[in-house]
Amino acid sequence: MATGLHGRMSATQNAAVSVRGLTRRFGDRAVIDRLDLDIAPGEFVALIGASGCGKSTLLRILADLDHEIEGEVEVPVKRAVAFQAPRLMPWKKVWRNVVLGLPGLPDRRRAEAALAEVGLSHRANVWPKVLSGGEAQRASLARALVREPDLLLLDEPFGALDALTRIKAQELVGELWQRHNCAILLVTHDVEEALLLADRVLMMKDGVIAHEVRVDRPRPRAVEDAYLAELRARLLGWLGVGHGAMEDAA
C-alpha cells in the first residue's frame, strides 16, 4: 500500500523527519527496503553509500518527488532542495530564480538579501547561463534558503565543482546551516565532506541505514584531525575501501 507524505505532526512529534518501514521497489528489486530514519530539528545529517545504494532515491522521496513508496514518511511542510545540477530556469534572471514560487509578486529585495548571503549580490541581474558552476550552485542554495525551510535536502551539491570551489562551497553550507538552524540531509559520496559538515553520518547499504557514526567535534573542523581520520577509516572500511576494510576482514 502506498502511503503519501504528511505534514509534520503525529508519531515522532519532535522530529523534523521520521521514516518508518520505507520501501521503494524498481521492478522486483527493493532499492530501499524497510528503512527507518529520524532527523531532529536543526540536525545536520550526511548520508553516504556506494553509488546505486539508493541514497538519492531516499532524498527524492523526502523531497516529495517520488510517491511509488510503501511505509510511513513524514517531512516538514517547509522544505527545500538543492540538486547536483543547479537547475536554475535559464529564461529567468538570477534574482527571479531565487524568489520563484514564493507567494506574492517577485520581491527583488528579498532575492538580493538571499543572494548576498551566498556572496552573489553582484550577479542578481544576469542570466543563469553566464554564471560559473560554483556561482550557479550558490544561486541554487540561495533559492533553497530564501524559503526558510525546516528541512534542506542537498543532493551531492558539490559533486560537479572543482576541488577549490568545493571547499569554499562546503564552508558556506556550514555557515548557512548555523545561521538558519534548519535540519539538513546531505547526500554525498565524499566521506571527508560528510565528516567535516555533519553531526551524524549515515551509511546506506542494502536498502537500509547500515551504519551510523556521531561526529562529536566542534566546528570548524579540519580534515587532519586524528579523531576524524579514525572515523574516516572506519567509514571507508564499511564502504569496502582503505585500511578499514582489511581490519574488518582480520
Binding site: 523531497a63 516529495d64 518527488l65 527545500a80 540538486f83 536554475l88 530556469m89 520563484l100 514560487g101 524559503r147
Partner: peptide, 15 residues
C-alpha cells in the same frame, strides 16, 4: 529536471 525543480519550489500547476 527543471519541472522537478519547479515542483520542489512549490509551483502550482498554473505557475
Amino acid at each position: 529536471t527543471l519541472v522537478e525543480a519547479g515542483r520542489t519550489l512549490g509551483l502550482s500547476r498554473a505557475a
